[in-house]
């Protein structure tokens, strides 16, 4: 009974925040997104998938959301953001439906496989996940890493800007300096 109550509270909360993500201004929508992540991780916890819950918090609420927050803050996107969101709603709905049908397909066709792979009965679901990830899906896992790596390189490329006068310092050159450089001189008569 208690668990069911918690489930309904979290589920309602996540759905409401998910709707608010679409219908609020840039920074607020990211904040609502974080709320979605937190409530969904609560749902995961209810299911006993601690690892997934925490990973959702770490990766999405922690790392990903920080990046998303930086975007509207840095680029000064204000009202135009919402405008484009409405304009692209057809595209959004299509993608959403596609994703949903994919999930439905997977759940309907291969439930057996999933049961075998990630057995929730295992007390330590880190171990269970690890065994699946590093054996059956090892190549896919590596591929994900490559994609992320490319993304990092891309971001760095985007942010490198030439033509700015920035003073660079070599740390080794800095540390090698010492008080010896000071010369003590007498002013000779000629220089007066």
């Amino acid at each position: 009974m208690n668990e069911a109550l918690v489930f309904y509270v979290l589920a309602t909360f996540s759905i409401i925040s998910a709707v608010m993500v679409v219908f609020s201004c840039a920074v607020n929508s990211v904040l609502f997104l974080i709320m979605v992540f937190i409530s969904v991780s609560g749902l995961f916890l209810l299911l006993g998938a601690e690892f997934l819950a925490m990973m959702l918090l770490i990766i999405y609420a922690g790392a990903f959301a920080v990046l998303l927050l930086m975007l509207p803050l840095m680029l000064n996107i204000k009202e135009t953001y919402q405008h484009t969101a409405v304009k692209c709603s057809a595209f959004g709905v299509t993608v959403g439906l596609l994703l949903f049908s994919c999930l439905a397909f997977v759940l309907k066709v291969k439930p057996q496989r999933l049961e075998n792979d990630v057995s929730l009965a295992v007390a330590n679901n880190v171990k269970a996940l690890g065994e699946v990830l590093y054996t059956d899906y090892a190549y896919l896992f590596q591929l994900c890493g490559m994609v992320l790596f490319v993304a990092i390189v891309g971001v760095i490329m985007l942010m490198i800007r030439n033509g700015m006068e920035i003073k660079e310092h070599k740390i080794a050159g800095q540390i090698i300096r010492s008080a010896d450089e000071i010369e003590l001189k007498q002013l000779t008569d000629g220089e007066k």
Binding site: L57, A61, G62, V66
Partner: peptide, 11 residues
């Protein structure tokens, strides 16, 4: 997770 969350909150 909580460490990351607090960072997010600082932003």
């Amino acid at each position: 997770a909580m460490f990351f969350l607090s960072i997010c909150l600082i932003v």
